[in-house]
Structures are given as structure tokens and as C-alpha cells.
Design a protein around this nucleic acid. Structure first.
Lengths: 118, 118
DNA sequence: CCTTTAGTTCAAAATTCATTGAACAATTGG
DNA sequence: CCAATTGTTCAATGAATTTTGAACTAAAGG
């Protein structure tokens, strides 16, 4: 059972800007970029919000067309829709992510999430 | 008596995105671009909202650092802070305005607000 | 001074958004 | 089957945001 996503031409500028205009969602997008655009499971973002709240924010990003979320077993993997956005609004996502990288402080999240080891 | 504006380095990404993520304010920004970035008096935007509401939206844009508003006599002239934004967030405003140009239809304003008569 | 012009401020109402806890669904593993 | 894992939905709540009308300020002109 797949989730609903807007097609590339259904993506609206104001929705994308509103989606990225929230600090939690901007952090999620920046983190996705840091992870080579995904795929990343929802639980990876628990450093930014509670599980319930994350569900809400990830839905906002998906409905705005910023991310794509695929169901796989009991997990959901989210990716940045970078090429779709580039096609629809050239340069927009790149400049936002570049700005976010400079703007957001390291955001160490206290708890380290990746197990660097292995 | 001048109005308060954030300095270039005080401009925050999330604020800019939130400011431009509203359709009325996006239309104002696009209209400013269409007018070679201004200066444009508030009354010029009456096609997008009521006088009172415009006061609110123009303040939002100004406080976010997207526009600069200068008082002159009984009028206030607004300009896009294009170079400041370019310096702070390279490419961002350009891509938003380019996207807005494609997204927003001519927006003839259909209903004129002022009673042209009198 | 009086009026017009241009736009603001205030308080209230209407909307929308973000956050939470409790309960729920679906997949996986023992 | 039972339990754990992953994440969702629902309803409620608190908080911002948007919108409006009425009253107001400040500059300009007659």
C-alpha cells in the first residue's frame, strides 16, 4: 500500500516554501541531504521531534512534494525529491539546502544517532 | 522616523521561507520583482489584499528581511532587498522569483478594490 | 484650520498549525 | 499465537496566524 504523493507538476511553490519554513521540517530536509538524500527511516529523525509529531511533519513534507516516502515492512523510508524539485523549481532546493547548512548550527542532538563503528 | 529592519546577517532562513510561503506575500514579492524591485507604494498592492491586511503582510516581509520600506511624506515605499538576500542566501531569491513567475498566473486583479469613481 | 491622502494600530474573530497522549494497525521474530 | 517494533490516526489543546472594522496618526494641500 503506497502513500499519496503529488506528481511533479502538482507541486506548488507556496506549499514547498511553507513546508521548509518550519525549523523542524527544515532540519529534516537538511538531515536528508546530509544522508545523500536518503532513504532514511522515520526513527532516524527522533532527534528533532517526538514520534507522533514526526509523523505529522513528515506527512507535511511528503504532501508538499519535498520528500517521497516508501513503505517497506514495518518501516518507511524517506528520500528527498531532489530531481523532481529541480525540474519544477530549478535551483530552489539547492539554495535552500545550502543556506540551511550555513544557518543551522551543528545541532549535535546530544545523542549520537549513527553508529559510526561497524 | 525610520522603520526597523533586520541587518543582513540577522536575516533568518526559516523567516524568509515562511514570509514567502504565503500566497499574498509571494504575490507581493513577485510584483516587486516585476517593478524592477521597487520602490513601490503600499497602495500599489491593493490588488492583493485590503489596506489593513496589506499593512500586516508588508510588515511580515519587512521583518523577515525580504523587503525594505522607507517612509517618505505620507507614503511608504517598499523595495526588494535583493542584494542583501543574495549575499546571505545565494541564489535563493532568484529561484523563488523565477518559480513564482512560472507559477502565478498574470493575476489581473479582476476585482479592483478602490472605488475608481468619485 | 480643515480635508484629503496614505497607511497604521488595536482588539476581536476566524482559521490554521503544532504538539501531545492514547489507542490502533501491520510486519517481524520467537 | 504472542510480543516487540515501527509508525499511524484520532481528538484535544494550546499557540500562532490571518483577516476585519473602527479609530487613529502624520504629512500635504487649499
Amino acid at each position: 500500500m503506497q502513500l499519496a504523493h503529488p506528481t511533479t507538476d502538482q507541486i506548488e511553490l507556496a506549499n514547498v516554501l511553507t513546508a521548509l519554513g518550519d525549523s523542524t521540517r527544515l532540519a529534516i530536509a537538511a538531515e536528508l541531504a546530509r544522508q545523500q538524500d536518503g532513504p532514511v527511516a522515520c526513527s532516524h529523525f527522533l532527534m528533532f521531534a517526538s514520534k507522533t509529531n514526526l509523523s505529522y511533519h513528515l506527512a507535511k513534507l511528503r504532501e508538499a512534494g519535498v520528500t517521497r516516502t516508501e513503505v517497506s515492512g514495518t518501516s518507511r523510508f524517506t528520500t528527498l525529491r531532489r530531481s523532481d524539485l529541480e525540474q519544477r523549481f530549478p535551483g530552489l532546493l539547492d539554495s535552500v539546502l545550502a543556506a540551511a547548512k550555513e544557518t543551522l548550527p551543528p545541532q549535535d542532538a546530544g545523542g549520537r544517532v549513527e553508529t559510526a563503528g561497524a
